Simulated assay, not measured.
Amino acid sequence: MKKCLWLFLAILSLLPCPGCEKKSVPKQPVKIGIDIWAGYAYAFIAREKGFFTKNGVNVELVLRDTTLETRKAYINHEIDGIFGLFSDMLMQNSEGTPARLVLVIDRSVKGDMLVGRPQFQTLRDLQGKTVGIEGINTFSHIFVLKLLENAGLQESEVKFKNINGRDVLTALEEGQIDAGHTWDPVKTAALNKGYRMLAHSGDLPGILIDGLFFRPEVIKGRPDDIRLIIKSLLEARAYAHANWDEAIALMAKAEGMPYEAMQNGVLGVKHLDLKDNVEVFRKSEDMGSLYWSFKTIVDFFITRGQMTMAPKFAEFIEPQFVMRLWQEEAQK
């Protein structure tokens, strides 16, 4: 009798219990900081057109007005990843807030400009003048200093004023500066008002690069999500280029930017696809390569005393996800 009871209980324990099924706990969203910049605005295409959802990854895009605000959120651990500038994240990495580049989003070709008063003809006309830059020892500072250096002007020959890129037109109108580094929507508005383009990012290939960065612990803990995020973004990029008018309108609305400014901003960058990323992650000494950009930017920071030693290139990039997606494409 006891043996039968034991057998009955053993069988019963194997049967499913109504209401006792183990429920899967939904993952917390991967929070990615993004600011007002046309170059990586197609992340909003990935959200609005359902590419993140289609690929089964929960993503929250956290929008801020400026790169400084987004970086602050990253430093304060309010977000898991960030769309950011290669140079800024490299500097931030050296200051103790680690980040790894997983995808190169764009290179600024004409997206960034140094705009000045109508009477200026060349960069040489800025000698003794006041130039607006967004922060000291930032991507903006590097960009302007390199432009001036190529024009034969030394840093001491120009006065600098810390002006947010979105405030450059206002600062020009108020007489605070004579020229300033900016991008859309301010770039288009300044040109429409008669201010002159003195230089653009195409004059300095490889200096202004945007990418997607994540914390090392996020990469280690959620590698599948990172891969699916990258896949979704690349699909959104392709969709945006195939459905131009719809995409520009959607991105402009998401970033609170006029259609013309968004379109000019997107036309001012080169969006890298999967093949481009595979090539750019390869170590190369060629001008404009990611490694060349890394060395150029590190040399700048070391010369100015902002870095005491050069970081290792291999410890700043994380190409595994791009390479795996490339292999998956090759097997199709």
Rank of each mutant, 00 (worst) to 15 (best):
R282D: 09
H241I: 13
E279W: 09
A261K: 00
A252Q: 00
F300S: 03
K275I: 12
T303C: 06
R324M: 11
R324P: 04
S284N: 12
G268K: 00
A310L: 07
M307D: 03
R282E: 15
K275S: 15
M307Y: 03
A236N: 14
W292M: 03
L325N: 12
P311G: 03
D276M: 03
A236G: 13
D273I: 09
S284Y: 11
V298L: 07
H271L: 15
W292L: 05
A242Q: 13
G288M: 09
A236Y: 13
K253N: 09
G265W: 00
A247H: 05
L272C: 11
W292V: 05
S284G: 10
A254E: 13
L325T: 11
E279R: 15
L325Q: 12
D286P: 06
D286L: 12
F321C: 00
R324D: 14
A314Y: 08
M307Q: 07
Q306R: 15
W292H: 13
L267P: 04
P311R: 03
E260W: 05
G268N: 01
M309W: 05
V269Y: 02
K283F: 05
V298G: 05
G268L: 03
E260Q: 15
K270S: 10
T303A: 15
E315G: 09
R304T: 06
R324G: 04
N264E: 13
E246W: 11
K253T: 07
A310R: 15
D299I: 07
Q320I: 13
V280D: 09
F321M: 00
P258R: 00
L290D: 04
I317P: 01
K275P: 06
V269A: 05
M251K: 02
D286G: 07
E246D: 15
Y239N: 11
M309V: 13
Q320M: 14
R324L: 12
M309P: 01
R304L: 06
L250E: 04
Q320W: 11
D299L: 11
F301I: 10
P258W: 00
A261E: 00
A242F: 05
Q306C: 09
L325Y: 12
Y239K: 11
G288E: 08
E318N: 04
D273T: 09
M257D: 01
T308M: 10
E246A: 14
A254C: 08
F300T: 03
K283M: 01
T296L: 10
F300G: 04
F294T: 09
I297D: 02
D276W: 07
T308S: 12
D273K: 08
E279L: 14
T296M: 09
P319Y: 08
L290K: 02
W292I: 06
A314R: 11
R237E: 06
L272E: 06
L250W: 01
M257K: 07
Y291H: 14
M257P: 03
V278T: 11
N243M: 08
Y259N: 01
G288Y: 08
Y291G: 03
L272S: 02
A247M: 08
G256I: 05
R237Q: 12
L267Q: 14
F281N: 01
F300N: 01
N264G: 11
E255L: 15
S293K: 05
E260D: 14
A240H: 08
V322I: 15
R324H: 10
V278F: 08
F321N: 00
R304I: 04
P258G: 00
H271M: 13
